[in-house]
Amino acid sequence: MSAATVNLVVAMGCEAAPLLRGLALKSLPVEGGFRAWCDYARETFLLQAGIGRVNAAAGVVTLQELSGHPVCSAWLNVGIAGHGEEEIGRVLVAESVHEEAGGRVRYPALPAGLALATAPLLTVDRPSSDYRPGFLHDMEGSAFMATALRYSSTELVHCLKVVSDNRAQPLSTAGLSKNRVESLLELAVEDVVSMVADLRVPAERRASRLAPPAVWQKLSEDYACSVTQGALLRRLLQRWNALFPGRELPEVKQPASARGTAAGELLRQLEAGLDEIWQRDVQ
């Protein structure tokens, strides 16, 4: 599995189809009524979650599992949205994501050099032609964002929308057939491909920073570290590598039986060794 993936979530198959071609994705077996795809390197995943907030949230959780719980994942919700004033076919990125039902607002940290225009996004539970001025309107964005942020950070979770209806051509007259939606998404493929590439760079940097040192897994298993001890061990090993790159860890002596666990003794000896060697080196 890749340490950093870019995961896309769409609501409908007709939204997915142009993206599968643009990103060269192949089908993946998946349970739970979803459909999913990934690229050959398993670095880009796409999942068709269904319409609405519940489906979007469940889709994110499923995709996180399917992509193998990478160290870092970037997330992109792609789909159609209404907008009172913008012209149909316009591609916009959400600058803020508002939930009509809960009132919560989230502000994605927009990527550096983003060339696309932005707009606030309002997630509603029912399709409507009652457009809030200036806002994009969809049915998934807020739940997608709230759930994806559990696995990633605010710089790496975004919503990209194609305007499908507006005040001049509201939902009732926009004629949003599958073919029509697919052709609207075709207009966004280039932007999606570009944004996937742009998100992968910071995701990989974050993954590289968050990845544990090479020996961490083995040591934490050998010494049966608890979760807290594992986190302490990871930080100590990172400090060791930063201060003494390439130098072998000090030999850990057998713990004195009455003085706590082997893992506790490992941590104590590592910290003492780190302090002692550093002090010796700087004298």
Binding site: R106, L149, T154, L156, P202, R205, R206
Partner: peptide
């Protein structure tokens, strides 16, 4: 809010 990456934000 939590869940922000200070390092990534610092770049821009």
């Amino acid at each position: 809010p939590h869940g922000q990456d200070f390092r990534l934000q610092k770049e821009n």
